[in-house]
C-alpha cells in the first residue's frame, strides 16, 4: 500500500496545490518521487513527531492540507496530544498516514506494532480513521480524506486488489448472498485471510461479508444490520485489540438497534499472549487470525448445522 499511497499523492500534487507532505524522517527508497515532485511542499521534519504534528497544525491553519507520514506507531502514540489539542480541537486538515498497522512490522518488535491505534484516535473530535482493506478502497478513502478537510488517520498495510465479487459501499465493501447464515464484519487487509478460510471451507455461499474501512463506526450500516437481523450470528475480525475496535463498535451498535445476536465471536489482537515474537504471519497465528485459525472459528458457527 505504501507505493500505492506515494503514487496517489504524486498524482494529486498538482490538483491540490495546498497539499504539503511531511515525513518524520522516513521514506528511504519509497518517497523520493514525492520529494522530487513537491519541492518546497515536501518537508522532512526529522525524528521529532510532536513538533511534526504541531507544525502541521500551524501549516493547516494557514490553509494547507498536510499529510504527515511515519510508521503507524510513531505517528499515533508519541504525538497524541498534538493530534487532539492542536489538530482535532481546531478542525484542521492534518492527515496522519501510518505505514504498517497491526503486526505489520512483525519481528521488528512490539515498539513497531500498532494494535490500539484506532481505539486511541477514533474517539478524538472531528477525527476519521481510514483503514483500507484493498488497494481499490485506498483511493476512495484518500479521495474522501482530502475532500473532507478534517483530521484523519490513514492506516496502511499490505493490500491486494479487491475481489470482483465485492461491491464498494459508503463504509467499505460487501459481498452478500441470498441465504446467509453468518455475518462476517472485518477490517484491514486481514480480510484476505478471512476470504481464504471461507473459500477453503466452502462457506462462501452461506456467509455475508462486510469490510468496514473507516472508524469510528457511529451507525451500523443498514445492510449490515439487515444481515445481522437475519443471520443472528456474527464474526468480527480485526488486527486491533478488542477495546475500542471494530468488534466492540459493531456489537454496541447492534445492541443499540435491539438486534438479538445468538452467537458472537470476536477475532482480534491479544498483544503477545505467549510472550514470543515473530513475523506478521506468526502473530496472526498466535491470535487465531491466520487462515487455519479462522477456519477453526468458522467451524464453531456451523458445527451443529
Amino acid at each position: 500500500m505504501r507505493k500505492h499511497f506515494s503514487n496517489y499523492i504524486e498524482n494529486v500534487a498538482d490538483k491540490y496545490d495546498d497539499l504539503v507532505f511531511v515525513t518524520g524522517d522516513l521514506g528511504y527508497n519509497a518517497l523520493e518521487n514525492l520529494r522530487d515532485k513537491l519541492g518546497n511542499r515536501f518537508i522532512n521534519a526529522g525524528v521529532a513527531e510532536q513538533n511534526m504534528i504541531g507544525m502541521a497544525a500551524g501549516m493547516a491553519y494557514r490553509g494547507y492540507r498536510v499529510v504527515c507520514y511515519s510508521i503507524a506507531p510513531f505517528v499515533v502514540y508519541r504525538c497524541l496530544e498534538q493530534m487532539r489539542n492542536d489538530v482535532c480541537f481546531h478542525e484542521l486538515p492534518v492527515f496522519i498516514a501510518g505505514n504498517g498497522g497491526g503486526y505489520h512490522y512483525g519481528a521488528l518488535g512490539s515498539s513497531h506494532h500498532a494494535l490500539e491505534d484506532l481505539a486511541v484516535l477514533s474517539g478524538l473530535p472531528n477525527m476519521r480513521c481510514y483503514v483500507p482493506a484493498f488497494l481499490d478502497d485506498m483511493n476512495t478513502c484518500m479521495d474522501e480524506m482530502f475532500e473532507r478537510r478534517l483530521p484523519a488517520y490513514l492506516r496502511l498495510g499490505v493490500g491486494k486488489p479487491m475481489p470482483a465479487s465485492f461491491t464498494p459501499t459508503a463504509y467499505g465493501a460487501r459481498r452478500t448472498v441470498a441465504n446467509a447464515q453468518l455475518t462476517v464484519v472485518a477490517q484491514s487487509p486481514i480480510i484476505n485471510n478471512v476470504l481464504q478460510a471461507l473459500q477453503n471451507d466452502g462457506l462462501d455461499g452461506v456467509t455475508d461479508v462486510f469490510v468496514v474501512n473507516r472508524m469510528p463506526l457511529t451507525d451500523l450500516p443498514a445492510d449490515i444490520a439487515h444481515s445481522l437481523s437475519t443471520c443472528k450470528r456474527l464474526l468480527t475480525v480485526e488486527e486491533h485489540v478488542a477495546v475500542g475496535g471494530l468488534g466492540a463498535s459493531v456489537a454496541y451498535q447492534a445492541a443499540a438497534l435491539g438486534i438479538a445476536v445468538e452467537k458472537y465471536v470476536s477475532v482480534c489482537a491479544h498483544g503477545y499472549p505467549n510472550g514470543l515474537y515473530g513475523n506478521q504471519s506468526y502473530h496472526h497465528e498466535v491470535n487465531g487470525m491466520d487462515i487455519a485459525g479462522l477456519s477453526r472459528t468458522l467451524h464453531t458457527f456451523f458445527e451443529n448445522a
Partner: peptide
Amino acid sequence: SLGHGFPIGNGIALA
C-alpha cells in the same frame, strides 16, 4: 498543555 505553541508557530512561519 505546555509545549504546544512553538511547534504550531513553526508551521505558521514555514507556511
